[in-house]
Design a protein around this nucleic acid. Structure first.
Lengths: 232, 232
DNA sequence: GTTTTGAAAATTGTATACAGGCCTGTCGAT
DNA sequence: ATCGACAGGCCTGTATACAATTTTCAAAAC
């Protein structure tokens, strides 16, 4: 963890992790002096990190009142899902137009590698990481660094909700079916990209993403309950 | 301009304006102590503002070396154009699905209002502002605040290049034709949205945006020349 | 019992001082 | 003449102190 030499960067990494996991409750005020002790840095680099997180959408800042955790509302989450759909659709379009066969084959290779783990894994965090990695690799086919950067940001901001969703699916035992569907969706997308068929690929992607966003309201409610009844 | 009470916000506004206009040359190192005098703020709020601009993509930060102006490369600009296409396409899709007729009519109304000014105006900055405003209004139909926020950011980051482009078109006298094309393109897009025809609307939009991105390499070269031969 | 007022406490925003690293320019060696 | 080491100054990163504002809490008035 002592990777970064400067304390502002260290504070930023830790705070971002906390923000992703909603260690701050939605809407809650973030106390600076408490964090200085917790992270062993002074207020200057701490505030630098907090400001970065504001610009990235993890926190909000009210003048004269300091920093607050972003609210967790169904509307906001749905917005993020829509932006995600926008960015990934574009990535597919550009990827099909630009990526060479080797790159696309590499994406399919990743699916092959993770197929077994994906089917057997019962750990929500691991499943989500594999899923996210596939989507990031897909996005990287675009060769567009800005697109990738924005998508990474969006993914981090919806990660918690998706995690809670997966948790629930595993508990309900309904994961197997849904999980397989997700995996085969990835396969469908990858194959369409490989065949350079833009419309089918984009359509498959949008179906894949939109499936979740329909359940968003319930998802957010569930996420709230997990946050305020911290048993798991 | 003395709108914001806190100096960090004031510094941020001024710095962002400077960054948009490339008052810092591409790749140039930003000297903090020089800016503290220029903006009459101390280093703490100044650095806060600089960090925000880094997170927004206007500046870069090298550890131990401070802040630098973002580089101005054709690849980067093209990436931004692609992201813009992604966001606006999504906005159209969502807008058609969600906006009521009154909202769409309001968009058309804006076109009517500005039609005369658009045809006669010879001021690049004003033309660009009208164009940008149309696209922002279009984006707002989506009802997606995050989408709007990201698009606003992208627009600011390509504004300078677009401005230089318009400048050149006006000087060449070739504006009339191109300008009319642009205006009628807006009309085509708006009408397709009004008719709730998603595919044609998106297609028209992509044509409209992509037209520029083909000339990006030349555009960036021109922008460079304007930056380093400051006559205008 | 509710609301208002007031002061104290806590917290944020800003300035400034200091430490450490980076860059530059000079000097010496090959 | 070119390259490399080194010293000095400059700049960045961080800590801390101070000022101003906000929040809190309790007491008093209605």
């Amino acid at each position: 963890m002592a990777e970064h030499p400067n304390s502002a960067e260290r504070a930023y990494e830790k705070l971002r992790t906390m923000a992703i996991h909603f260690d701050f409750k939605p809407g809650e005020r973030v106390n600076e002096s408490a964090l200085t002790k917790r992270l062993s840095v002074s207020r200057t680099p701490l505030r630098e990190a907090l400001n970065r997180l504001v610009a990235e959408g993890f926190l909000t800042a009210a003048p004269g009142q300091g920093f607050f955790c972003r609210p967790l509302s169904p509307e906001r989450i749905m917005e993020l899902y829509q932006v995600r759909a926008a960015l990934e659709s574009e990535a597919i379009i550009r990827g099909i137009a630009r990526a060479d066969d080797a790159q696309i084959t590499s994406l399919c290779g990743y699916l092959d590698e993770t197929e077994d783990a994906y089917s057997t894994c019962q750990n929500a965090a691991e499943l989500l990481e594999m899923d996210e990695r596939f989507h990031m690799k897909l996005a990287e086919l675009s060769g567009n660094a800005e697109l990738v950067r924005l998508l990474a940001n969006i993914n981090e901001r919806i990660r918690y909700v998706r995690l809670v969703n997966l948790h629930q699916l595993i508990e309900q035992g309904g994961l197997a079916g849904d999980d397989q569907a997700s995996l085969s969706m990835h396969r469908v997308i990858a194959l369409a990209v490989q065949a350079r068929q833009t419309e089918p690929a984009v359509q498959a992607l949008r179906d894949h993403i939109e499936r979740r966003s329909e359940e968003t309201v319930d998802l957010v409610r569930l996420a709230f309950s997990r946050l305020y009844v911290p048993d798991s």
